[in-house]
Simulated assay, not measured.
Amino acid sequence: MAIGPGEGPRERLLEAGIRLLEQDGPEALNARKLASEIGASTQVVYTHFGGMAGFYQALIRESFVLFGERLRAVPLTDDPVADLLALGLTYRENALTNPQRYRFMSGVTAPGTGVVISHDIIAEGTPSVLDDVNATFLPLVEAVRRAMAVGRMRDDDVIGVAGQFWSMIHGFVFLELAGVFGHEGHGVVHVLAPHAVNLLVGLGDEREAAEASALAVAPDPLVPEGVTIPAAGSQQPRRGRRPGR
């Protein structure tokens, strides 16, 4: 469950962690700063999380809970392929709206945390040792399963196919956040949509049907309101200390 108002020290620390992460990046995540945000001593971090490693894992979990709420808000239609693509666009919107949190969730900006949450998705059927992380993958799996059931994809390894779509949107988002596709969202039209259609055709869909599904969920505007995609070559400011210090 996401954090609500009037919660105790543990929840307030997580709320402060998410706020600091988005404002100042992962370098701001240290016990002293977190404790000061809620008017407590650093002991509160160790009391409720056992230390910063425990806090990092809890923050990752809470970040995925919030992400999961977004995914569950995506309405289901009678077009499972459009629903699948809509999940991908929600993934992108979440990343663009919360870029520091997204990088942290992906393990890119969490140096020195000592937290390992991933395992072999092909062997295990899920991407993580954490249920809250897996809960964000299941809607993708279900959309793929529905698409196969109605003949929009040939019968295949559901987990593997879901992994293909996840890899597609994950890679696109990282490049977009780096400014590779410009800052006006044109990569959605010229890269992501054609990539998705080509992948769907390769998985057995008719090109015309795949294009219609992609058009049905095309984002307008291309970039979410209030979001600025950095220009290529620019760097986010790095403030504060390394995590945990």
Rank of each mutant, 00 (worst) to 15 (best):
G125T: 06
A53S: 14
N30G: 13
D132N: 12
A162N: 05
A143E: 09
F67N: 02
I38F: 08
P99M: 04
P111L: 06
L96N: 01
A147F: 02
S213K: 01
F181T: 10
D83V: 03
L138H: 13
E7P: 03
T47L: 13
V65H: 04
P9C: 05
T42K: 14
G88F: 09
T126L: 13
R92C: 07
R70N: 09
H186M: 07
F181G: 05
K33D: 12
Q236A: 15
A196Y: 00
G233Q: 00
P194C: 00
A231W: 00
P221E: 00
P9N: 05
F64W: 11
V161C: 03
P243N: 07
E211S: 04
V129M: 02
S63I: 02
R12H: 09
S213A: 05
T97Q: 02
M148S: 13
A143D: 07
V150F: 01
G4W: 09
F165G: 04
L66V: 06
V141G: 03
V189D: 15
E208S: 08
L13Y: 10
H170K: 14
G114A: 09
G6A: 12
V150T: 12
G50H: 08
R245A: 15
G182C: 01
V74K: 06
A110T: 08
F181M: 03
F67S: 03
T42V: 14
L85N: 01
R145Y: 00
E142V: 08
G240D: 04
V217F: 03
H170D: 14
A216K: 06
V116C: 12
V150Y: 00
P5Q: 14
V45I: 15
R241Y: 08
P139T: 12
R70T: 08
V223R: 14
R145A: 04
L87V: 02
L87S: 01
G114L: 05
V161L: 07
Y91R: 14
H190S: 15
N98A: 07
E124R: 15
V227W: 00
D24H: 11
A210I: 06
V133K: 02
D79G: 07
H195C: 11
E206K: 08
S36Y: 10
E124C: 11
F137S: 12
P139E: 12
F137P: 12
M153I: 09
F172E: 13
D79M: 05
G185V: 11
A193N: 07
T90Q: 10
V197Q: 04
N94Y: 14
R92H: 08
E62Y: 07
L21K: 01
G202S: 11
Q235P: 04
V173M: 13
H48N: 14
M168E: 03
W166T: 09
T109H: 05
G68F: 00
A35Q: 06
E184V: 14
S41I: 06
D131E: 14
V74A: 10
R10K: 15
R103I: 04
T109F: 07
G160Q: 07
D131Y: 11
R72V: 06
R154A: 10
P5W: 13
V141Q: 15
L20S: 09
L59A: 05
E15Y: 12
S234E: 13
E27C: 09
V108R: 13
Y46H: 15
A135S: 15
H195N: 11
V129E: 00
R32H: 13
R145K: 12
L34K: 11
M148P: 04
A58R: 11
V173H: 10
G179H: 05
S167H: 12
